[in-house]
């Protein structure tokens, strides 16, 4: 059977939510792994959940991105191991240089917590294998540093060749450039996004007029681990 690691740092606080969804909704074998005990070889996929690793000091994700656990991910970037970073996990992947760009303080200077409509461009790889081009995906965001930034050259040369998740028109909650909510490596193996798919995996948790679309990311992983991507 497949095993998924949920990587926990001091200050990570969405690990139990991700574990609940993987275990109880998707029936995937997963384990919350303390960063000091993490070894990449034990796992078929890795999720870095949300929270406030190291209190967001310096910049969100900056300190976690220099731990041996993340350095191991950087050294293994050419291996075919799916990595998903959610919210603070996305910030860590960007700080580690595993995904392009940067995440800055929200344009309105405040923490934002609300449901948003996003859509997916060029879906591919293990986390988006069941998603169709342009598909709308509803999920909630909850972050203070989610304003994505990338310069135009890298946007054109890197992002426009890779899977992207964008906020729908009028739903950009933080001032992200090009309405970017999430980005992936070109082959889709490494995906990072600010919205929380684990909070949008059960209809009972969904705000009115929205849908529990986030689970398609975890369903894609199950499908992909079995059948490839």
């Amino acid at each position: 059977m497949f095993k998924v690691a949920i990587l926990k740092f001091p200050g990570t606080n969405c690990d139990e939510d991700v574990h609940h969804v993987l275990k109880n909704i998707l029936s995937i074998d997963s384990e919350i792994v303390w960063y000091k005990r993490f070894s990449i070889n034990d796992w078929d996929a890795i999720v870095i959940p949300g929270g406030f690793s190291y209190g967001d000091w310096l910049r969100a994700g900056a300190i976690a991105s220099r731990t041996p656990a993340i350095e191991e991910l950087i050294n293994a970037r050419d291996r075919e191991i799916p990595v998903l970073g959610i919210c603070n996990g996305f910030q860590i992947l960007v700080e580690a240089g595993l995904l392009p760009g940067a995440l800055l303080s929200n344009e309105n200077g405040r923490f934002v917590c609300r449901w948003v409509r996003t859509y997916v461009e060029r879906p591919r790889g293990p986390w988006l294998s069941l998603v169709e081009e342009g598909q709308e995906v509803h999920m909630p965001v909850a972050h203070g540093e989610g304003r994505y930034y990338i310069d135009e050259e890298n946007y054109r040369n890197i992002l426009l060749r890779s899977p992207i998740i964008r906020y729908a028109k009028g739903d950009n909650p933080n001032g992200s450039i090009y309405d970017i909510a999430g980005v992936a490596s070109e082959n889709g193996l490494i995906l990072g996004l600010m919205p929380h798919p684990e909070r949008a995996s059960e209809s009972v948790l969904v705000f009115r007029n929205f849908r529990s679309d986030g689970r398609i990311i975890f369903e894609s992983l199950v499908y992909s681990l079995k059948r490839g991507w």
Partner: peptide
Amino acid sequence: KLRIYNPVV
């Protein structure tokens, strides 16, 4: 080296 600042931004 430690990326005390983020050269991207």
